[in-house]
Design a protein around this nucleic acid. Structure first.
Lengths: 240, 240
DNA sequence: CGATAAGTTGATTCGCATCAACTATTGTGG
DNA sequence: CCACAATAGTTGATGCGAATCAACTTATCG
């Protein structure tokens, strides 16, 4: 099975792909697999000989620190879940399905081959991991400086922007396979507090969230309230 | 001027460098520059046509979010401060000198050349950015789940481990161009609270911190107290 | 020796966790 | 189609961790 159309879409959003790049991507063989909510897609420990690309659904990076469980990132369709593992010998966290997901596995040799033969593609794949890192840094900054309702808003703005890149936004609304308890878990709040913070945003008319679907009536106003600056995601590469 | 011995040291800690790799590194021309405490080494915005390597001292990644200033990472000698900027078109944060620093600038063309000619080195450089990302994720996890004294301890354990890789630890002690107010700033605590948390660690006999020098009498005990697991840093690459 | 910066201490306030109850919604078997 | 169970969401009371502000002590350095 050939790799999903998502990868060229995602990479192409960053920099022009020429025909040879596209062909190199199109000929990567993949194995597709389906996961349900809570399944471990990837387990911490020695890295497997393959990396995987999220096709649909969402996934969480889950760290165990002490006796606690902490989410350090959320992945959306088009993201590599562990492009890292192609270069790292061990993975320090699990990747867990948030809702149902489809995933495509790529053998590491295929990626190594790209690095040997297609320098431009290599730089673009590298870029993916850099953007991932950027998102994490901004997440860290947001966690350190925003209040609960602002963090939720920031999180929703981030999702709105990221899902937009892969074409999953319609009329400023998007699917969200996440419940309040999951949101609390992801942001590290209690359920009670999450609920109150969400009510705050709802009360301001900035967020509606019903049955797994989120609508942001005024994304700019929400962004302003939550100090969200989308520029860090609109990354055109300097890779060429 | 040729690139510092730090780069082969740092890369070589991850994977074997053959003679051609070493030569490719050794012939990279660099410009060396000195910065004093508080100087902006790199400014947020369009990326310059060069990347830089920290040779001595420490530096902070500083994000502006809303009206606040948040530190998302601390860099130590051997770290690239913005290997990102070689691939990213804009940088979303400043890099600021913490104490005096020496830095070596490398033109992006040189790095591009490496990606065209030396796939193995490319993978190792990529690896550097991945480790950087790992550190940030663990930082996020620590921030979310540890109490003040544990976070300080975790931070010191991380530094101990990272400085060890580049040979800057002697008898479990190391230079720390950081005062309590800086530490508060980095971890996002108030100065008062930072002080109390430090006293806690001192009271347990796990940390001494005098005149810019930190000593950890029992690193393992400190690591245990603070849920620090150094494995995420001891990264042998799977890059070959 | 006084001046400035670094470190320490205490009192008060605020954000969020925790625990516990309660309501609304969804799902299930009879 | 109803009765009930299970799950998701909401609300309130209380406690703790850390911020804030202000005073004070100790180093450092002309």
């Amino acid at each position: 099975m050939a790799i999903s159309r998502f990868l060229p879409l995602f990479l192409g959003a960053r920099d022009h792909l020429d025909d040879r790049d596209r062909e190199a991507l199109a000929t990567i063989p993949v194995r597709r697999e389906q996961f349900s909510h809570g399944d471990k897609i990837i387990t911490a420990g020695p890295t497997p000989g393959e990396s995987c690309l999220l096709i649909s659904g969402m996934a969480l990076r889950v760290h165990d620190i002490g006796k606690q469980r902490v989410v350090s990132a959320l992945q959306v369709p088009g993201d590599f879940l562990d492009l890292h593992s192609f270069l790292l010998a061990t993975l320090d966290h699990d990747v867990v399905a948030q809702g149902d997901c489809a995933v495509e596995f790529v053998r590491s040799e295929e990626l190594t081959r790209i690095t040997e033969e297609r320098p431009h593609l290599t730089r673009l794949l590298w870029l993916c991991t850099l953007i991932d890192a950027k998102v994490t840094r901004v997440w860290t900054a947001a966690a350190a400086s925003l209040k609960a309702h602002e963090r939720i808003g920031h999180f929703l703005c981030e999702l709105h922007a990221r899902l937009g890149i892969v074409g999953l936004i319609r009329d400023d609304s998007f699917n969200m396979p996440i419940e309040q308890k999951d949101l609390a878990d992801i942001l590290g709040f209690s359920v009670a507090h999450t609920n109150r913070a969400l009510q705050d945003l709802r009360g301001r008319g900035l967020v509606t969230w019903n049955k797994g679907r989120v609508h942001l009536p005024d994304p700019d106003a929400l962004a302003a309230l939550c100090s969200f600056d989308s520029r860090y995601l609109e990354t055109i590469s300097a890779a060429r």
